[in-house]
Design a protein around this nucleic acid. Structure first.
Lengths: 239, 239
DNA sequence: CAGTGGTCTAGACCACTCC
DNA sequence: GAGTGGTCTAGACCACTGT
């Protein structure tokens, strides 16, 4: 007993949704061009785009700026409580992670950052911008602020590697506790551009504060994810 | 040093974003109609709608079906680890929570539900559908499956009240552990309609499995949130 | 009823990617 | 240069809301 679809864009949505679920269209595969779809279904490009946008909102397809629409791969599961690095949890799920370093600078903390990281104004903070990809598809932009006073010499390390590993191996620091904030919102304009995505793309923001054993802020991490690329999972145990 | 905006819809976005941040437009306030905005800025309705949709994706405004666009109130912070009820965490943040019971049925478990809840196929499950609002604004639809065998007589209770309280007071059951899954995706069609929202609205899905002290599944809870209405916050402590 | 957003048409030009 | 999505125009009719 299927529901009657009287909207054209919903018809498109259901059509492609069906093809994707049946795996007639495979992850990473390119959809026909908007003009081709319009011709095939006798629809204006605007209507086609509306249909595609609803599929994008569902996380079934994604676009790369002016290159086309593609079927979304399955989302990676991110379980922050496990304290695994991006590299660990992505590869353990059978995907291929990679990291591009976009920028590294050392800046004095302004008033806002000083408060967030519980350091004095002017303290030296290492600021990293990285892009991380899964199977070659850019999925998140990361902005990281590191308290260099707690991790001397860290700015001389290779910053495209896993910070989790670096802290563990070189500094003997495991993350002790962390505070996590998740928010569903549009990707920031810069993040969208660096992901090769259209601005205003639905995104997931994660803000993570990592503390050392003494409760000091080791690192502040902002992650801007393509919303279809990740599922968050957490186990909460007895208090 | 402001960036030059050459897109019309981005200009609109920046304009209203500014007004909202300056509180020249207050939470809950209605925006002018799409046609009025178009006239004022000399833009087509399609372009106006595109601008408004990006503001919606940012979580700054929301719409109610055919009633208009409104400024979003601040998001409520949901911290699952605190095991507070919706009523508790909403009211403790200075908002007014309310709950509408949409449906109650008792059904035998099908194969899928039986597996998810670790019961025999055909076991009696209480199924609740509720709509929850903050300050009168519907923000989430909840689908709850309850294992009646563990909570005898529960189907005779008032199901618009807090389940957390009911379990605590009548059954002496506190939630022990829970498993949480968060996914940013479009609202389901039914959920969107019950929230008075357009279908395909960006949404946040939360899936929560609550276990009793013996590790049995007490309750399975699916929450479909308007994406601008909630921020998730979790503290993870030493393992 | 008038007013609102929801959907849709039939075009157009532009910016960028790919070859 | 051909093809793609990104943006935009100037309309139209419909479904639903409020009065």
């Amino acid at each position: 007993m299927e529901k009657q679809i009287d909207n054209h864009y919903r018809y498109l949505q259901q059509h492609f949704s069906y093809l994707i679920r049946q795996q007639a269209l495979l992850p990473g595969e390119k959809l026909p061009s908007e003009r081709d779809i319009g011709e095939r279904f006798n629809l204006t490009r605007m209507t086609v785009r509306q249909g595609l946008q609803t599929l994008e909102a569902e996380g079934l397809i994604y676009r790369q700026n002016r290159r086309g629409w593609f079927v979304s791969p399955p989302a990676v599961v991110y379980n922050p409580a496990r304290r695994q690095s991006f590299i660990e949890y992505v590869s353990s799920q059978g995907f291929e992670p990679s990291t591009d370093l976009i920028g590294v600078t050392v800046n004095p903390a302004d008033a806002r950052m000083a408060e967030l990281m519980k350091v004095d104004k002017g303290a030296r903070l290492l600021f990293l911008q990285r892009r991380r990809s899964i199977d070659g598809r850019p999925v998140l932009i990361e902005h990281i602020y590191i308290n260099t006073a707690l991790l001397p010499g860290i700015e001389k390390e290779d910053m495209s590697q896993s910070l989790t590993h670096l802290l563990r191996n070189k500094y003997g620091q495991a993350y002790h506790s962390m505070n996590l904030i998740f928010k569903s919102t549009a990707l920031l304009e810069d993040a969208a551009r660096e992901l090769g995505a259209a601005a205003g793309l639905p995104g997931l923001h994660i803000e993570r504060t990592n503390y050392d054993a003494a409760g000091r802020v080791l690192e502040l991490d902002y992650e801007y994810w393509r919303h279809d690329a990740v599922t968050i999972q957490i186990d909460v145990n007895d208090a």
